[in-house]
C-alpha cells in the first residue's frame, strides 16, 4: 500500500482515526454506488438492457406454440449477442468516467484529501461501480428470466444462471479496462472516446480482423483459437457455449480442436482469461494512479 502521507497527516487532524483499509474502500464504494445509481447512465443502460433482454427472450420464442421449451438455446444465443454488445459498452464507459470525471471537475483533489490511500480510492470506485453494474444486470436478467419461466417452462435454469455469472465476469473485466483508461486520461471526453474505440475494437475490429487474417494467412486452427481467446469477449462467448453444450463443437473446427485438446481444462482457461482481464488492468490502474504526481 502506498499511502499518501501528506493527505494522511492533514486528515488525521480532522478525524480521530483513519479508516481501516477495508473501511476506506467500502466507504468509497458506497459513495460511488450511490452516485452511479442516481445517475442517468445507470437508468438508461438498465432500461435499455432490460427492454432488449426481454425482447430477445420473448421474440425468439414467439409463434411456435408448445415448442417453446426447446427454444432456450436459441434465446441464449440471442442474449449472448445482446450481452456482447451492450455490457462492454456499459462497463467501459462507466469505468472511463470514474476518475477522469472527478479530475475534470476538480473533486478528485478533495477525495484524495481524505485520510485514505489512492489505492483505496480507486478500489472503492471500482467496487462501487461493479455493484451498480451487477444491480443493473440483475434487473435485466431477472425480468427476462421471468419471461422465460412463463414462455419455456424454465428449461435451462442452470445454463441461465451461468450466463448471468459469466456476464458479471465480463462486466468486471470491461470495468477494469474502463478504469485504466480513466486513470490515464485528463479529460472525460478523451476517456469516453478511448473507451468507445476500445469497445469497437473488442466487439467488431478484433473479430473481423481475425476472420480476415485467418482467410488471408491460412491460419491453423490452434493459431486462430490462441488469438481468439485473447479477446475477453470471445472467452466469454466460448465459456457460455461450453457450459451449455459441454463442448465447443458448434463453433466448427476451431471449437472442436479446443474441446478435444483442452477437454476439462477449457472452461477454467476461459474463466481465467476473464479474471486476468479484470485483475491486470485494475492492478495497472492502481499502480499508475498511485504514482501519478499531479491530479
Amino acid at each position: 500500500m502506498i499511502a499518501n502521507s501528506a493527505a494522511h497527516f492533514s486528515a488525521t487532524r480532522q478525524t480521530p482515526a483513519a479508516p481501516t483499509l477495508i473501511g476506506g474502500v467500502a466507504r468509497f464504494a458506497r459513495r460511488e454506488f450511490r452516485d452511479a445509481i442516481a445517475s442517468k447512465w445507470f437508468a438508461l443502460y438498465t432500461f435499455a438492457f432490460t427492454v432488449l433482454a426481454v425482447g430477445v427472450s420473448y421474440l425468439s420464442l414467439s409463434g411456435i406454440g408448445s415448442h417453446g421449451f426447446a427454444g432456450f438455446g436459441r434465446t441464449a444465443a440471442g442474449l449472448l449477442n445482446l450481452v456482447m454488445l451492450v455490457v462492454p459498452l456499459m462497463a467501459l464507459t462507466a469505468g472511463a468516467g470514474s476518475v477522469a470525471g472527478e479530475r475534470e471537475r476538480g473533486t478528485l483533489l478533495y477525495l484524495l484529501a481524505q485520510p485514505v490511500s489512492r489505492t483505496q480510492v480507486l478500489l472503492g470506485k471500482h467496487l462501487g461501480l461493479a455493484a451498480a453494474i451487477i444491480c443493473s444486470l440483475c434487473v435485466g436478467f431477472g425480468i427476462s428470466g421471468g419471461v422465460l419461466a412463463w414462455r419455456t417452462g424454465g428449461v435451462g435454469v442452470g445454463a441461465y444462471t451461468m450466463l448471468v455469472g459469466f456476464t458479471v465476469l465480463l462486466a468486471l473485466a470491461m470495468l477494469s479496462i474502463g478504469v485504466l483508461i480513466s486513470v490515464c486520461s485528463r479529460r472525460t471526453a478523451v476517456a469516453m472516446g478511448i473507451a468507445l474505440f476500445t469497445w469497437l475494437a473488442f466487439v467488431f475490429i478484433s473479430d473481423l480482423g481475425l476472420m480476415a487474417s485467418s482467410i488471408l494467412f491460412k491460419l491453423r486452427v490452434q493459431e486462430i483459437f490462441g488469438l481468439a481467446i485473447i479477446n475477453p469477449l470471445q472467452s466469454f462467448k466460448m465459456a457460455v457455449i461450453v457450459n451449455m453444450n459441454a463442448s465447443l463443437d458448434v463453433l466448427g473446427p476451431v471449437g472442436a480442436y479446443a474441446s478435444r485438446t483442452l477437454g476439462g481444462a477449457l472452461p477454467w482457461m476461459l474463466v481465467s482469461s476473464l479474471i486476468a482481464w479484470t485483475a491486470l488492468p485494475l492492478g495497472l490502474a492502481v499502480l499508475l494512479f498511485s504514482r501519478r504526481g499531479s491530479v
Binding site: F69, L148, G153, V155
Partner: peptide, 21 residues
Amino acid sequence: AGGGIGGARMAVLAATLLSIA
C-alpha cells in the same frame, strides 16, 4: 407431450436476481 418442467425454478431464479438488485 412437451417437457414443461422447472418453470417454478426459473421463476425463483428470476426473483432471486431481482432481489439481489
